[in-house]
Simulated scan of single mutants.
Amino acid sequence: MAIILGDHQYGKAENRIVRIVRDTPRHEIRDVNVSTCLRGRFDAAHLTGDQGEVLPTDTQKQTSYAYAKTVGLASLERYAHALAVHFVDDVEPVDQARVELEEFAWERVSVGGAEHDFSWVRSGREVRTVAVTVDADGSAWITGGLKDLVVLKSSGSEFHGFLEDEYTVLEPTSDRIMATSLVAKWRFGAVDVATFDFDAAYAAITTAMVETFASFHSLALQQTLFQMGKTAIEAVPELVEVRLSAPNKHHFAYDLARFGIENHNEVFHADDRPYGLIQASVTVEGAPDAGPAWDQYSGLV
């Protein structure tokens, strides 16, 4: 029986980088987690322990920090693309590089009604995510996204007419709380990395999804997810696919009748587990193949 080496990769996970731009009295801040992952001709390292083709993960870390200065973080996607291109073009054994980012948002402190030039408080209702994969032939796959976006609506959501069997005890409802902690990822088609406004696209996508969640009268969370993906693509035509994952954060009307108190969908118990997990992708028909766009960084260090 032959035993062979399978797929392998390595990188440096979660380099926490804070970049301050202080060229003017009004400073700017970007705060990110950067993870790098390299794939290529590293068989010897696994099979014989030969490290001759292995760029140390510490070097990947140092490069990530250096690029935060030389390339900058004004555009997260451009930074990730430049870093991935460097590893593929300048490190000979590397055939493919992936860079993933998480951004932690800050907002300016207001002093006397005016924004302070160099003080912030942590903000952000969600964590922004970016991933860029670059191949040796120059092909690039760019994805954006978010996680931990917690949204809730107290009405405008129904759930009834579902399949039932001998174990079904859930009561149908035409008025319920709908809440979730959304994870969304989107894939761009052909865009010019140097000129495309990724920040504006992020704002348009998140606005479209949140407004759809709020305003769309839902017969099921599945239906809402499709509509959110659809409106995101309509808002940013450069998108070719949106993937959504939504744990159903259940809210159950609390039994107050035993105390002689009426509860007309006003007092709830928020139950964190178990929970329904609804996932869907919304794709432009005829979109280019995803390739390695959706690969997940594995945490290998």
Results as ranks from 00 to 15, higher is better:
residue 90 D to F: 06
residue 210 V to K: 10
residue 177 I to Y: 12
residue 227 Q to L: 11
residue 37 C to S: 05
residue 106 W to K: 04
residue 230 K to I: 00
residue 238 E to W: 09
residue 123 S to A: 04
residue 226 F to C: 08
residue 135 D to Y: 10
residue 102 E to M: 12
residue 34 V to S: 02
residue 134 V to I: 02
residue 30 R to Q: 05
residue 172 P to W: 05
residue 135 D to E: 13
residue 61 K to Y: 12
residue 76 L to I: 04
residue 18 V to Q: 11
residue 282 V to K: 05
residue 40 G to N: 05
residue 246 A to V: 03
residue 198 F to S: 02
residue 258 R to P: 09
residue 80 A to Y: 08
residue 148 D to A: 14
residue 198 F to P: 02
residue 185 K to Y: 08
residue 199 D to C: 13
residue 11 G to F: 06
residue 185 K to V: 09
residue 1 M to C: 05
residue 165 D to W: 07
residue 260 G to A: 14
residue 179 A to C: 13
residue 207 T to N: 08
residue 176 R to D: 05
residue 225 L to Y: 09
residue 10 Y to M: 04
residue 64 S to F: 04
residue 252 F to V: 13
residue 79 Y to N: 10
residue 167 Y to D: 15
residue 177 I to F: 08
residue 69 K to R: 08
residue 108 R to N: 01
residue 28 E to G: 14
residue 237 P to W: 01
residue 103 E to S: 12
residue 104 F to W: 10
residue 261 I to N: 06
residue 121 V to D: 01
residue 296 Q to V: 10
residue 104 F to A: 02
residue 64 S to R: 06
residue 284 V to S: 10
residue 123 S to T: 05
residue 142 I to Y: 01
residue 111 V to P: 11
residue 171 E to G: 09
residue 283 T to C: 07
residue 66 A to Q: 10
residue 185 K to C: 12
residue 190 A to K: 12
residue 301 V to L: 14
residue 289 D to W: 10
residue 219 L to F: 14
residue 36 T to L: 04
residue 231 T to L: 09
residue 161 G to Q: 01
residue 115 E to P: 05
residue 106 W to D: 04
residue 116 H to L: 08
residue 194 A to T: 13
residue 24 T to H: 12
residue 54 V to M: 07
residue 26 R to Y: 11
residue 93 P to R: 04
residue 280 A to K: 07
residue 61 K to F: 06
residue 109 V to P: 13
residue 36 T to Y: 06
residue 127 V to C: 01
residue 144 G to A: 06
residue 91 V to K: 04
residue 256 L to V: 03
residue 284 V to M: 05
residue 208 A to E: 03
residue 160 H to Y: 08
residue 146 L to F: 07
residue 189 G to Q: 01
residue 120 W to P: 01
residue 44 A to P: 03
residue 242 V to Y: 08
residue 201 A to E: 02
residue 235 A to M: 05
residue 271 D to W: 09
residue 254 Y to W: 11
residue 135 D to H: 13
residue 195 T to F: 09
residue 63 T to M: 12
residue 101 L to A: 06
residue 292 P to S: 05
residue 3 I to A: 14
residue 214 A to N: 14
residue 263 N to E: 14
residue 208 A to M: 07
residue 188 F to E: 00
residue 95 D to I: 03
residue 1 M to G: 15
residue 23 D to G: 00
residue 289 D to V: 10
residue 87 F to V: 02
residue 184 A to W: 01
residue 127 V to M: 11
residue 243 R to H: 14
residue 141 W to K: 10
residue 65 Y to L: 09
residue 241 E to K: 14
residue 230 K to T: 06
residue 168 T to Q: 13
